[in-house]
Simulated assay, not measured.
Amino acid sequence: MSGADAARADATAAGAEAEAALARAFAAAGVSGWLHAVDLDGGAEIGIEPDAPVVAASVFKLPVLVELCRQASAGTVALTQRVQLPAGSTPTDGGIGLSVMLDDVELSLRDLALLMMSISDNRATDVIMELLGLDAINATMRDHGFPGTVLLGDCACLFETMEQDLGMPYDDIAPEQYEARFAAIRAMRAVTATETNRTTPRETTRLLAALWRDELLDAAGSAEARRILGLQVWPHRLSAGFPDDRVRISAKTGTIAHLRSEAGVVEHPDGGRCAVAVFVASTTPAVRNPAADRAIGEAARIAVDHLRSIRGCS
């Protein structure tokens, strides 16, 4: 066997070992998993069903952010534009951020985007989407090579379909009723990839890569998107896999019923950069499922460690 053949064999074996480790991590947490990770500079990648359609949940807010920054760069909207939200005006479920505020609010568009991405504020998302237009968001995804990333509606639309499918608001289901209603929950359109906002793990990492390489937006638009993504507050999923505080995580989470996800860019202090997207489905309806949350971080670490090993990074 030649040296080149031996190297290819070693790479194949290492990839198979990493995929097996990913499968074990998902199985240990009692979840099914879909993943894609790519080295933004070296191009190496690894995936577990990376092209399968997956429920975007709040990861769909990433295309919304992209379209906001695109329209801002084009001069269609201004990020400093002020938006007034009178108390009680068209609330959106979500239990956080503007959804639960009781008084009048006035914010700039970029600060609404910060709430949308950093704490996954559903009301902020819907305000931005109404301004941008659903068709425009989908057109940008389609026209720039992301045909599997499709938005059917905003957050209010998702909650409406859940209420229609369950015969009651999802948030009205008491925790002790989850098991009895789990079959109905798993049948909801909102957790069925073909019937709700969707993407694929590979398209999600490609979208992130385009933002980090200034390939989809101009430099200013890309920088603004990266700034906002870097301000996310949740430490319990991707970040849990990278406890070194020098590692920068810029990401967006997604949660709906038994589905959890996070997609982002992991940047090491040596300059290495990897985009990674992890989507999992648990076999329990529990809202609090730390094992599933940790599995996202562990899977991301396994994938990123594998990609870094290819480049000789530790």
Rank of each mutant, 00 (worst) to 15 (best):
A7N: 09
R8Q: 02
A14Q: 03
A18Y: 00
E19V: 14
A20K: 07
R24D: 15
A28D: 15
A29I: 14
A29Y: 10
G30M: 11
G30N: 11
W34K: 04
W34Q: 06
L35T: 07
H36A: 11
V38W: 02
D39E: 07
D41H: 05
G47K: 01
I48C: 12
A52N: 09
V55I: 15
A57T: 09
V59D: 00
F60S: 03
P63Q: 13
L65G: 04
E67V: 05
E67N: 05
C69S: 08
Q71R: 12
V77E: 02
Q81F: 09
R82T: 12
R82M: 15
L85I: 15
G88P: 15
T90I: 05
P91S: 03
D93V: 11
G95F: 14
G95V: 11
G95Q: 12
G95L: 14
G97V: 10
V100E: 13
M101A: 05
V105K: 14
L107P: 02
S108K: 05
S108R: 08
L109E: 01
R110C: 08
A113E: 06
L114I: 05
D121F: 11
A124Q: 06
D126P: 09
I128F: 02
A136V: 10
I137V: 15
I137F: 07
N138E: 12
R142V: 14
R142H: 11
R142Q: 13
H144Q: 12
F146E: 06
L151P: 01
G153L: 03
C155T: 09
C155E: 13
A156W: 02
M162S: 13
Q164V: 14
Q164N: 11
D165T: 00
L166M: 09
L166N: 05
M168F: 07
P169W: 06
D172W: 06
D172M: 07
E176P: 00
E176N: 06
Y178L: 14
E179L: 09
E179S: 03
F182A: 13
A183Y: 12
R186D: 03
R186V: 04
A187I: 10
M188S: 08
A193G: 05
N197H: 04
T200Y: 04
P201D: 08
R202M: 06
T204P: 01
T205W: 01
T205P: 00
R206G: 12
R206Q: 13
L208R: 04
A209R: 06
A209T: 02
W212H: 08
L217V: 13
A219R: 12
S222L: 07
A223E: 15
A223I: 14
E224M: 11
E224I: 06
A225N: 01
R226S: 05
I228R: 00
G230P: 01
G230A: 08
V233M: 09
R237N: 01
S239T: 10
G241Y: 08
F242G: 07
R246I: 02
V247E: 09
I249Q: 02
S250W: 10
T253R: 11
L259W: 01
S261L: 15
D270W: 02
R273L: 04
C274P: 03
V276N: 00
V278A: 04
V280P: 01
T284M: 05
T284G: 03
V287D: 01
P290V: 09
A292C: 00
D293F: 07
D293S: 02
A295I: 12
A295Q: 10
G297V: 10
A303N: 08
D305I: 03
H306Q: 00
L307N: 09
S309Q: 12
S309L: 08
I310G: 09
I310V: 13
S314V: 14
